[in-house]
Design a protein around this nucleic acid. Structure first.
Length: 291
DNA sequence: GCGTCCAGGTCTACC
DNA sequence: GGTAGACCTGGACGC
C-alpha cells in the first residue's frame, strides 16, 4: 500500500530549478516527468525503494510504494535531502551576484542547487560517462549500467549498481554490454578499489582537505581529468573550478565572443572575480534558459 | 549506404 | 609543464 512523506525544504529552495539544474534528471535511476513535474528515482538502502518526489507547500512530497520502518524512513529522508542539496548554503552566492543585473535572477529564483545522485560513487561513474562522448552515448551507458547491474526495487524499477555489483563483472562486460569502450577498464578498476575498501569516495563529502588537494585525489582515478574532477567538486559543494567542457566553452563563445572560439585563459579571467563561486556562476549563467 | 567528423576529455609518451 | 596522438561509441552530416 502506497505511503506519502513530507520533507521540509530550506528557505531558499526551488524544486524546478534544482531538478533542471543540469542533465542528471535525464539519467537513470532518475526519471523526470515534465507534465506532472515529478522526479522519480530508486534509493539503494538496505533494500532498493522507488520514490516519486514533487513540490508541496514549503516541502517535498515523497510517494513510496509502502510504509517504512522508522529507521528506514530516516535513511530515506536523509538520501532525498542529499539529492536535492538541502545542505548547500548559497546565501553568500546570492549576496555576491545580487547587484549584477544579469545575475540578480539567481537569488530571486533560488537557483544554484545542482541535483546530485544518492551517492558520490554514482556521481563519479556518471561523470566519467559524460567524458569524450555525446549526451546520447552518456545516456546509453548509464541506462545499461542501471538496467543490467542495478538491483530491482518492488515494482521493477532499478537502482544504480553498487560498487560490489560493478566489481563482480569483467572488463569485457563493460565493453560488450555497457558500450563503455575504453572506459571499461576504468569502471572495473574503480569498482574494485571501492568494493575492496581501498578507496572511500563517500568521505569526500565531509573531508577537510583543501579543494586543490581534493582535486588531486579525484584526478588519481582513471578517467577523471580536469573537467571531470571540477564537475564532481561542484557536486561536493566546491565551486572553485569552472569544469570547462566543449558544451560550456561553446556557450561562452556565443555569449561573450561573437560565437568565435577563444582560449580557456580568457574564460577563466572573465569569471575570476567570483572567487570560490565562479564554477557555479558560469554554470547557472549558461543554463539560465533551461527553465 | 558509406565515410568522416565530433561530442558535456583523458591518458601516455615524449620533449 | 606542455603537447601530439590514440582512444570507444553513436549520431549528424555530406555525398
Amino acid at each position: 500500500m502506497s505511503h506519502t512523506l513530507f520533507l521540509q525544504t530550506p528557505a531558499n529552495f526551488d524544486f524546478k530549478r534544482t531538478v533542471l539544474s543540469h542533465g542528471w534528471c535525464e539519467l537513470l535511476p532518475f526519471e523526470f516527468d515534465q507534465e506532472q513535474w515529478t522526479l522519480s528515482t530508486v534509493i539503494r538502502g538496505e533494500k532498493p525503494i522507488s520514490v516519486k518526489v514533487r513540490a508541496a507547500e514549503k516541502s517535498l512530497q515523497i510517494e513510496l510504494p509502502e510504509q517504512l520502518s522508522p529507521q528506514d524512513q530516516t535513511a530515506l529522508l536523509s538520501a532525498v535531502s542529499h539529492i536535492f542539496r538541502f545542505d548547500d548554503d548559497l546565501q553568500e552566492f546570492y549576496d555576491l551576484t545580487r547587484d549584477e543585473p544579469h545575475l540578480a535572477w539567481l537569488g530571486e529564483q533560488n537557483a544554484g542547487r545542482l541535483l546530485r545522485s544518492a551517492t558520490v560513487f554514482e556521481d563519479l561513474v556518471k561523470t566519467i560517462c559524460t567524458t569524450n562522448c555525446n549526451w546520447a552515448l552518456t545516456r546509453i551507458m548509464v541506462t545499461n549500467l542501471v538496467e543490467k547491474l542495478g538491483e530491482a526495487a518492488p515494482g521493477g524499477k532499478k537502482a544504480f549498481p553498487s560498487p560490489q555489483a560493478m566489481a563482480a563483472v569483467p572488463v569485457e562486460f563493460y565493453k560488450a554490454e555497457i558500450r563503455a569502450g575504453y572506459r571499461a577498464a576504468y569502471f572495473r578498476e574503480l569498482a574494485e578499489r571501492i568494493a575492496g575498501g581501498e578507496l572511500q569516495v563517500e568521505d569526500w563529502l565531509t573531508t577537510d582537505l583543501p579543494t586543490p588537494e581534493l582535486k588531486k585525489e579525484l584526478k588519481k582515478i582513471k578517467g577523471v581529468g580536469d573537467y571531470a574532477a571540477e564537475n564532481l567538486l561542484k557536486l561536493l559543494g566546491r565551486y572553485d573550478g569552472l569544469a570547462l567542457d566543449s558544451w560550456l566553452r561553446g556557450q561562452f563563445y556565443k555569449k561573450y565572443n561573437d560565437a568565435n572560439p577563444c582560449d580557456d585563459k580568457r574564460i577563466r579571467t572573465h569569471y575570476e572575480r567570483y572567487g570560490k563561486w565562479r564554477g557555479l556562476v558560469i554554470w547557472c549563467e549558461m543554463t539560465e534558459k533551461w527553465l
